[in-house]
Nucleic acid binder design. Structure first.
Lengths: 250, 250
DNA sequence: GTCTATATTCAGATAGAC
DNA sequence: GTCTATCTGAATATAGAC
C-alpha cells in the first residue's frame, strides 16, 4: 500500500474531506470542486484516483465498512463459539451488531460520528447505485445476524423478526444522523456537527447506552395480534382532506 | 381559493410532480426542468408560483403537514377530554401520533406513501433551510405530545422519554422511507416504489400494525442503568484500525 | 501523479412579449 | 398566468503538457 507517501496522502485527504462534505450536504449537494479545494488537491485528482464521483462515494464507504463487517462477524463468531451450540441471547446479538457500530462513533480513526451520520443519511437515499452498493456490502453480515436472531427467538415468526431488525436499523440510523428534529424537543441537536472530537466519544457512548435498551424492548415486544394497540379505537377518524371543507382565506 | 381553474391546476400539478421527484431523487438531485417538464408546465411557472426551488419544497410539505398537525392535535385533544384529567396510556399516545401519520400512507389524497417516503428521507437532511422549516412546523405538536408522555410515564426521567420519542421517530421514518436495506434481508423492499395505488393502503396498514408494538416495547423498555446490556462484555474488543496491521494487496 | 485548460452539459433565475 | 429566450454560473469529466 505505501508505494508513495504523497499518493496516499492525496487519496486519504480526498476521502476524509469527501466523507465530511457528503455528510453535510449529501451526494448530489456536494460538488467535486468543493471536495478538491478543501482537500487542497487538484480538481482532476478525484477522477484520477477514483474514476468518478460515484466511485468516490463508494470508496468513502468501503474504507469504513470493511472494518465494520469484519468486526461484526468476528464478535458474532466469538459469541457463538463460547455459547457452544446453544442459542445466543437477543441482548448479546444486539450488543454485537449495534455496539460494534457505535464503536465507530467513539473512534475517529474508524470514522467517528462524521461517518455514522453519513451512513445514517445515505441509507435512506434511493439512488440505484447506492442501493446496489449497500446491498452487496451488507448482505453477508445481515444474513448471519438474521439467522442468529431466528435461533434466539424461536417462538417469534421469522417475518416478524425481519421487520423488527429493520425497525432497529431505522431507529439507529436516524438517531445517528443527528440532523433531525430532536433539537425541536430539547432545544439542541444530539451534539452539534461542529463539536470537538472529544465530545464525539462521549456522544456515541451516551447514545449507545440509551439506544440499546430501547431496541431490546422493541425486539421483545408483544406480537402484533396480541398488542393492545390493535384493539384501540376510541377517537373517531376525521374526514379525509378530499372531503373536508376547505378554509377560505379572506 | 378557486379564482381560476387553470391556476390551481398548474400549482397542484407542480406540487404533485415535485413531491414525487423530491422523493425519488432528493432535493439537490431534482432539477426544476425535471419537474416542469413532467408536470407539463412552463419552466418559469415554478418561480412564478413559488418564488424559488427552496420555497417549492417547503410548500410541498406545508400542503401535507397542515392536515397532519391539525389531526394530531385534534386526536390528542379528544383523548385527553374523554380521560377527564387522568393521564393517557402510552399506547393511546403512540396510536394518536404514529397512527395519524400512517393514515397519510393509506390515503392518496393526503399524500400516500410517496409523501411518507419523502418525509422520511427529508428529515435526515441537514440543509439549514430544511431543518429550520421542520423545526417551526413540528414545534407545537411535538411539545404537546411530549407533555402527554411525561404525564403518562411519571416514573421515567423526562430526558429518557425525549430520547425514546426520538428513537421512535427514527424507526418510523426509516421504515417509511422504504428505500433501505430491507430488500437485502427479505429479497425485496417494503413495496416497490412503482407499485400500484391499491397496494399503498395495505402497505401502510401492514407497516403500522407491526411498527406500533415495536415502538411501544421500546418506549416501555427497562431504563438504561437497569438494562442487562449494560453489564455485558463477554467478547474482547478488537484493536482499532489505526493499530491494526494492514492487509497487503499482492 | 499533478496540473492547466477546456469541452460539454446543465443548473436556477429572470426580463419582457403576449 | 404563461411563454420564449437568455443571463450567469457551475457541474462532471477529460485531453494533454509537465
Amino acid at each position: 500500500m505505501p508505494e508513495n507517501k504523497l499518493n496516499s496522502d492525496t487519496r486519504e485527504r480526498i476521502l476524509d474531506v469527501a466523507e465530511r462534505q457528503f455528510m453535510a450536504h449529501g451526494f448530489e449537494g456536494t460538488s467535486m470542486r468543493m471536495i478538491t479545494s478543501m482537500a487542497d488537491v487538484n480538481l482532476a485528482a478525484v477522477n484520477y484516483h477514483f474514476g468518478s464521483k460515484e466511485s468516490l462515494l463508494c470508496e468513502v464507504f468501503r474504507r469504513r465498512l470493511t472494518w465494520l463487517n469484519r468486526e461484526r462477524l468476528r464478535v458474532l463468531d466469538a459469541l457463538e463459539q463460547q455459547a457452544k451450540g446453544s442459542p445466543l441471547k437477543p441482548s448479546q446479538i444486539l450488543e454485537a451488531f449495534f455496539g460494534t457500530l457505535m464503536r465507530i462513533g467513539e473512534d475517529e480513526s474508524l470514522g467517528g460520528m462524521t461517518f455514522l451520520r453519513l451512513l445514517g443519511r445515505t441509507l435512506t437515499d434511493p439512488a440505484e447505485f447506492i442501493r446496489a452498493f449497500f446491498a452487496s456490502e451488507y448482505a453477508e453480515v445481515l444474513e448471519r445476524y438474521k439467522l442468529a436472531l431466528f435461533r434466539a427467538l424461536p417462538d417469534v415468526p421469522k417475518a416478524e423478526i425481519v421487520w423488527r431488525l429493520h425497525f432497529m436499523l431505522g431507529a439507529m440510523s436516524y438517531a445517528i444522523a443527528g440532523t433531525d428534529i430532536l433539537h425541536v424537543i430539547t432545544g439542541h441537536g444530539i451534539g452539534d456537527i461542529s463539536g470537538k472530537e472529544e465530545d464525539s466519544r462521549s456522544e456515541a457512548k451516551k447514545l449507545s447506552a440509551r439506544l440499546m435498551p430501547f431496541l431490546l424492548g422493541g425486539l421483545r415486544a408483544a406480537l402484533p395480534q396480541f398488542a393492545e394497540t390493535s384493539k384501540q379505537k376510541q377517537v373517531p377518524l376525521a374526514k379525509t382532506a378530499r372531503n373536508q371543507p376547505q378554509e377560505k382565506q379572506p
